[in-house]
Write a protein that binds this DNA or RNA. Structure first.
Lengths: 189, 189
DNA sequence: GACTAATTACACAGGTCTGTGTACCTTTTT
DNA sequence: AAAAAGGTACACAGACCTGTGTAATTAGTC
């Protein structure tokens, strides 16, 4: 009988709190003391679950790396729906840009593993777009996927600065034009 | 006789060095000690020119805020040329994204003055696009200008993570389609 | 009850950071 | 030569940060 670690609760609570604070205030701006105090645990407990702050940072980013789940909706709706859900997230008060871009901006060249996971995330979304475009029989699916990825990150960066959900609508409008130009029949967007 | 401060050399040297280090390594990652040591001056001298690190940060961002200069070239070339010059900057090894976006990402909600100057910068570029589009008699110059601004920040964010100048070409291709769709006659892209 | 594992409180080391105080020096101006 | 301005060296305060050591305490399991 493997002991079945039936209590990952603490580790999850730490990760949850670290995620919230890292994302909202910045990684360097939040100390492990702050995280532990926020949960109400001792710093020692935190270090019993994560060997270092760097490990916590990696776990934070890994947790943020959720691959887009497959959906039954038509490809074109999935693509354009991306911008609708971005607009919804922009409207929430706790949106502060892309955690991967922010981490790279903050930690710079210093941390190569952070950059690696950021690249992986960006590429996974680009490939998600590409596969949908292939289903739509778009000729240059690779190129258009890159352009859509640029639009996504562009409206995220703009919203980070401006706090304006309209940036998502602008990106969606641009995406609609690009799709139509590629021969995709787009519903009344 | 006003004493005519004929020697702003030191202040400029400090700003220059702070700019380089802040931009390349991050604002929080660089201490005033590091900046002073890099120039070879004492920390006291630095504090004689800037009352605090915050003042130095503000001066750094203010220095980065250069309005796009008027050009004699046709509007459409100016717009698309933006992406060419971005591609050139992406290829340089010392490009690390948009300093304003990075500063907002790093300093978070903490510093409102940083966000203000970042918004001003983003808006100034959007207005530059808009005025060029008005010259081109584009109907929805406001909307298209926003879309172009999104493309600019999108390829910058993508390049920050991926270090891939091709992101600028993708953005340019998208911009070309958007311009053509708005009725602008675009030269052989 | 006895054993085990997790958690706690708390002090502390060693480092970095911002910002100041002070006394001395060097250069320029008058 | 005298005065003023700017720079230097250097110590230091006070805060914060990561990470560790240790002994006591709690909770879960046999």
């Amino acid at each position: 009988m493997a002991p079945l670690p039936a209590k990952p609760a603490m580790k999850d609570r730490i990760l949850e709190t670290a995620d919230r604070l890292f994302y909202l205030q910045g990684i360097r701006a939040v100390g492990v003391d702050t995280i532990a105090a926020e949960i109400g645990i001792s710093k020692r407990t935190l270090y019993n679950h994560f060997p270092s702050k760097d490990a916590l940072i990696s776990a934070y980013l890994a947790r943020r790396f959720v691959a887009p789940r497959p959906s039954g909706k038509p490809p074109v709706e999935q693509i354009l729906g991306t911008f609708d859900s971005l607009e919804r997230r922009f409207s929430a008060r706790d949106f502060r840009g892309c955690p991967f871009v922010n981490a790279v901006a903050e930690l710079g060249t210093e941390d190569q593993s952070v950059r690696k996971i950021a690249i992986a995330f960006k590429e996974s979304r680009r490939l998600w777009f590409r596969d949908l475009l292939v289903q739509l029989a778009v000729a240059d699916a690779e190129g258009l996927a890159t352009q859509l990825a640029v639009l996504v990150d562009g409206c995220i960066a703009q919203d980070l600065v401006r706090n304006d959900p309209a940036m998502a609508r602008a990106a969606k409008a641009a995406a609609t034009v690009l799709l139509a130009n590629a021969g995709v029949k787009v519903g009344g967007g």
